[in-house]
Each structure stands twice: as C-alpha cells, then as structure tokens.
C-alpha cells in the first residue's frame, strides 16, 4: 500500500469524524461511527488487490459495513443510521459527480453519459448492499420476537 492510499485512509477517517460531528453524534458513538468510515475505505482499498471492479467492491463494502452497523446499533442501543451514514462518507462518489458535471459543461456528451451512469451505478451498489443486510437483520429480529399485531 502506497503513500496515497494511507493518506486516503487518514483523510477518509477525518472526513467521517467531521461528518459525525455535523450529524451531532456524541460520546462513544462518535468514535465507533468514525471508525466505520476508517474500516469502509480500508476494506475498499484492500479488496482492490483481488477485485478490479469498483461497483462490486462498493457492494461488498456496503454489506460489510451494514453488518458492522447492525451489530454496533444493538451493542450501543442506538439507530443503525448513525453508523451507516458515517461509514458511507468516504464512499460518496463526489469526484465522480464532479467529473460528470465538468464533462457536461465541456459539452462532451458521451463522456457525460458514461460518467453519469457510473455515478448512479456506484450509488445503486451501495444501496443494494445496505438493503440486503437490513432485510436479513429485520427478518432475524422478527423471528426472535414477533411484532405485536
């Protein structure tokens, strides 16, 4: 792992921590939430050794991070969103969105479409990963204590 990757992990963690503060997460929960951002980007970079496709890696990271979120939410008795949001911060396709805009502005239409679809692809991978874990987690909770109906 090179210098650039280490810098990314450190700044990704800083970014997650800062967003955690903006979202008004406090105390121990802030620490665990920021750590989720650290894990998510580290995992994304490590997976690059085996899986070249970014959307696939996004999906795997989303699944892993969601499992982490579900576990931490139960341990710390707080909504899972707390951990989901901070964990996803480094994965937000900000760069991708910028280059989408820039190519639209530059009038490069085929480039724009390619970038726009790619940005959407990344978001959908993330959402699918989260939905999968959330659905499984809900089913497990339901099985353990049936909702009063």
């Amino acid at each position: 792992m090179g210098k650039a990757e280490i810098l990314q992990i450190v700044t990704g963690f800083l970014g997650s921590l800062s967003f955690g503060i903006l979202f008004n997460i406090r105390g121990v929960r802030l620490f665990w939430a920021a750590l989720a951002g650290f894990f998510s980007w580290s995992l994304f970079l490590i997976l690059a050794f085996w899986i070249p496709s970014e959307p696939v890696r996004y999906f795997i990271v989303a699944v892993t991070v969601s499992i982490y979120a579900e576990i931490m939410a139960r341990v710390l008795k707080t909504p899972t969103t707390t951990f989901h949001m901070t964990a996803l911060i480094p994965l937000i396709p900000g760069g991708s969105l910028y280059y989408t805009m820039a190519s639209l502005f530059g009038g490069n239409l085929s480039n724009f479409l390619e970038k726009a679809v790619y940005t959407l692809e990344l978001s959908v991978s993330l959402a699918l990963g989260i939905v999968l874990v959330t659905a499984v987690a809900h089913t497990i909770t339901r099985l353990r204590k049936p909702a009063a109906k």
Binding site: L88, Y98, V131
Partner: peptide, 25 residues
C-alpha cells in the same frame, strides 16, 4: 477540480440518494 470536489462533498446528496434507494427497495 480538487478544491471543488472537496467542497461539494458536504453538499451532494450521496447519503440522500442511498437512503432514497433503500426506501424504494
């Protein structure tokens, strides 16, 4: 480019879109 990317990170609806897709699914 790098300065703008850094600054739009806090504006773009990355989390909004992810939550939206999650609600849909």
């Amino acid at each position: 480019d790098k300065v703008i990317i850094g600054n739009i990170m806090s504006l773009i609806p990355g989390i909004g879109l992810t939550n939206a897709l999650r609600d849909l699914f």
